[in-house]
Design a protein around this nucleic acid. Structure first.
Lengths: 195, 195, 195, 195
DNA sequence: AATGAATGAGTATTCATTCAT
DNA sequence: GATGAATGAATACTCATTCAT
């Protein structure tokens, strides 16, 4: 930990994280052994512990990276858009595109919620993400653009929609993110109500 | 398996399932050992294997029971309501009330999604649940009561909303199901749009 | 730990302790693996952990048992002897006889002194042992039977003589305890001075 | 091994030996890793193996150096003293002073006795030390200055006294060597008997 | 039905040692 | 001389499962 790494070292580390994330997503965290990770990469077992303190720390690191990366992506997408409703929409779409490209990380986030050890780390990132959305929602409410309801509820409802549609349509059914995002946006903006 | 059980036997079995579900939900499936389950109940290890083939089977059984139970609850709630939109609403509310009373099972469902071994069993139940909703949605569309969009998408969007709001507001923040259900229904019907 | 054991269980436990003590004494604590212990006894690895929390706990248990046993032996030997100098002599002789019969434990005591983890447990027992001797020494000093010097020093000096002579003459050279004890007693009582 | 070293090289080597000896003494030989030694000195792992063949060899080297150094110290102290009893006394005192200044090495000697691998090397040095004392004892016996008993026994008894009093009073209780040496000499010359 | 002892393959992790740079 | 990355055998320990009683 806190090791200073050479270029080569940094690459190894990334390689380990990517490979592990893929295995964790595919079969689950526990069923994936450290042995499997290193032998899958054709390296000795010591390599793993040269770069990570433990399997648990590795997981946490992957988790944190994923959350950071997603957030960066959303902020990029939103840019300096003025309209808060438009910002919400851009955020939703960015989430789904990111999710399409990072299905592994998404599964890990879901898993993290099921194990006491990982919940705190998970929530830390999740709170930040929701806070971002809440900001836009509040602004839109102030402008009378969206219904005056608890912004926290609205934000979480959208997170629920995006997350679930992603899992079902993008991951399980392999549909392209764009179309699914259209549907998600439409649902979030209008619900079931006919245009 | 498929053992014929006395009354006392049935109680033991239920006791094991309930205790295990609680531990699985609290700390996770893998971190909970069979030892912990039996010693938590003050019985010998043989008892476990008298009633269940394996830890995995036990999990599957809990999962199936939970899904069956939820469905029964929804159908009861809907009764013979004529209005398809109302039926949807009743279904949503029933889900949340059930979830409030069975948080353990809900967490297990979430976990099942993260481990390859359990996914098939999970999906079987989930498909049935969504199919129920889809039926109502289709009917409502036919009546022009809700937007004419892929009913599958709408159904899953609602599942996402209900699931996530449940986890955040009912489980994490301890709010009563009723209020959260109001918010969920409102969001599903109207989205963000102002009244 | 704190397990209630059947008769058979008690025997297994003793068997493990005896075998482990022998290996620890022969090759050292660290070079002796748990694997070696269980396979030497022809049992599965789980057996070890059924009876002991860890290798370290096992060592500690052996240590404590040894110290307790030695003390009991000394007290038996001393009985209700009135003369304090005689009591000291009987104690020294008892130590050496015990040491002859328990060379394994003696080596473990020596090892325990070299590893920070075991020192506290070791000292606890050692202090008790020395306190016993000190009591007799004080009494003898009061009677003018032995030199009026710090009883603690005298007690420890004797412990040093007995311990070292045991190791060299009984263990390494295989001489019978009785003769060595004669020499030890003589040295303690008279030092180098000619009769 | 048998590498020819520059001045700087010799210093590195000594530094490694001193640091390792300190750690070995403090926590034990096995619990101290090569990693810990090199990182404690802020150097890379290769350095260790540049100077020593193995961890085991390092230990052996420290052990040998210590024994050699102690012996040199004793011979210096004895000088050309004529009186054999006085020579014994000077030797005892020198041992204790040396031990006070080299507590690390003393602990290593003790540890070496508990591990089969190190016993041979240990005994080699110990035999020489005892032989030195035995020589003086024999001479003193011939002069009728001390009791006519197996000189070997007497020598070892003294080694035991000195070793144990050193550990308890100098190491554990931090008393100054001189006073403890007085007590040790007195005990060796007179035993418990009143002046 | 139930107990508690036993099994042994499997897990994460450590660590002495090697080696390319 | 020195670094830090890599090796892989070995270790303590866990745990689902079995079985004699």
């Amino acid at each position: 930990m806190a090791r200073r790494l050479t270029q080569r070292g940094k690459e190894r580390r990334d390689q380990l994280m990517a490979f592990a994330a893929a295995r964790f997503a595919e079969q689950g965290y526990h069923p994936t052994s450290v042995s499997e990770i290193v032998s899958g990469l054709g390296v000795g077992k010591g390599v793993f512990y040269w770069y990570f303190e433990s399997k648990e720390q590795l997981f946490l690191e992957i988790l944190k990276d994923a959350q950071t990366d997603l957030r960066r992506r959303q902020q990029q997408a939103i840019g300096d858009e003025e309209d808060p409703v438009k910002r919400i929409e851009l955020g939703l779409r960015a989430s789904m595109e990111w999710a399409e490209a990072h299905r592994d990380h998404n599964k890990l986030i879901q898993f993290a919620a099921t194990e006491a050890t990982f919940v705190p780390a998970l929530l830390r990132g999740q709170d930040i993400a929701v806070a971002d959305v809440v900001k836009h929602v509040k602004e839109a409410i102030a402008q009378g653009r969206i219904r005056d309801t608890d912004p926290d509820v609205l934000a979480h409802a959208m997170v629920g929609v995006v997350g679930h549609l992603t899992r079902v349509f993008i991951y399980d059914r392999g549909e392209p993110a764009e179309g699914v995002a259209d549907a998600a946006v439409a649902f979030c903006l209008e619900g079931l109500s006919p245009a």
